[in-house]
Design a protein around this nucleic acid. Structure first.
Lengths: 213, 213
DNA sequence: TCATGTTGGAGAGTGCGGCTATCCAATGAT
DNA sequence: ATCATTGGATAGCCGCACTCTCCAACATGA
């Protein structure tokens, strides 16, 4: 199919597709002649993933490119490739080293990881962007006076651990291949809004149960 | 304290504070004279909350104003006020009614709610923005061919239900008052990045456990 | 064959959101 | 008396995600 057809199938305007091509989010089509290129199903699938990452996952275009580059990197094994892709996913703001709360937040997080027994993450420490963004979130809560106690955090973390176990089970149930890494990325990024929606719905339901309308 | 002092205490530039005042995110200070106003602790606390909502919670300024207006609305009872505030929080993109996947996504979500026994949410249906954004997320996953089975969804939802129960427990443990509604908003919005960070850390930990480095 | 429309490519332009800079008259500090 | 500071208003800036315009090379129907 040519550009116009790709646009029709995906519901993305040709101008935007050209933009994605320029930005390297989408591989160029196979050149048929000096001024024409042919696209196939793989382009359509990739285009839909790009849209999902950007619109649902709210990734900046530059970040999406980075993530997709890791997904496509055939030189790496499945696990590493997945790790690399997830590593480059966006994280909240970085901790503000100048703020006095950051130190106590870091301490709190370390204490939490210790309780949880998450030795691998603990070892990575500040190298892990996820760890840093967790510290930043904690610091903000402390600064606002909404610091949550460690019991609550531990319980929530245990629940998220169970969520993660099911995530990985699901990934394993898919056949290996390029699509599996895509699947994994989709699972991490696209399930986030889904999980948050479920949390809010559960809050509404529970709130109604406790306090009525 | 005056504007410059408020700026120093909060780490927010005076220009930005003026901007928030203009946008109605922050109540004007008490007028001391024709050209001066006095701010107090409550302004500082509110300013920090505003920053948190915008920077950590990534709320657009207009949405933050709406949420804060509900928080401040003294004419409503605690539960309603909280509900109204949460209702105006941002949600993912709206479902695309033209797309054929939306219908099956809605069906899937309804089946899920039925299994979960979330009657209150089920009754609200499409009126609830959270419900609509859940449908939109599901539709995207279906369209990408990453539809997840209902067993997996049910399990994840049950876990989020436990998260929500602990959220409400925590809110109850705070003393009632204006701060409690702020607390609730903060809990919903600011704990979201925290929970997602915990999920990713748990995924890293579990992934290392299963596949090694 | 030739008129008409389509294609891929490239650069400039657009709209929006969140600030930021400039200016001003009134004021407060010394 | 002087001079920086204040609150307030307006206009400008920046980054980002597109979107528009133009162009020469092609494809295609009459």
């Amino acid at each position: 199919m040519r550009l116009a057809e790709l646009s029709k199938q995906s519901g993305v305007s040709t101008a935007t597709i050209k933009y994605y091509l320029r930005e390297g989010l989408l591989a160029p089509g196979e050149r048929i002649s000096a001024t024409q290129a042919e696209y196939d199903e793989s382009h359509l699938r990739r285009l839909r993933l790009v849209r999902a990452l950007i619109q649902v996952g709210r990734l900046p275009v530059a970040t999406a490119r980075e993530v997709l580059a890791h997904v496509d990197d055939e030189s790496l094994g499945r696990t590493i490739r997945l790790g690399a892709a997830l590593w480059s996913l966006p994280h909240g703001p970085e901790p503000d080293e100048d703020a006095p709360e950051t130190e106590s937040a870091r301490h709190e997080v370390d204490r939490l990881l210790d309780r949880l027994g998450w030795a691998f993450v603990q070892e990575l420490g500040s190298l892990d962007p996820t760890y840093r963004s967790l510290v930043a979130s904690m610091a903000t809560l402390i600064r606002l006076g909404y610091a949550c106690d460690i019991e609550y955090l531990t319980e929530q973390a245990r629940l998220m651990e169970q969520v993660a176990v099911r995530d990985l089970d699901m990934m394993e149930s898919y056949p290996a291949g390029a699509e599996q890494v895509e699947m994994a990325v989709a699972s991490v990024v696209l399930h986030e809004p889904l999980l948050l929606s479920l949390r809010r719905l559960a809050q509404e339901e529970e709130s109604n149960r406790r306090y009525g309308l």
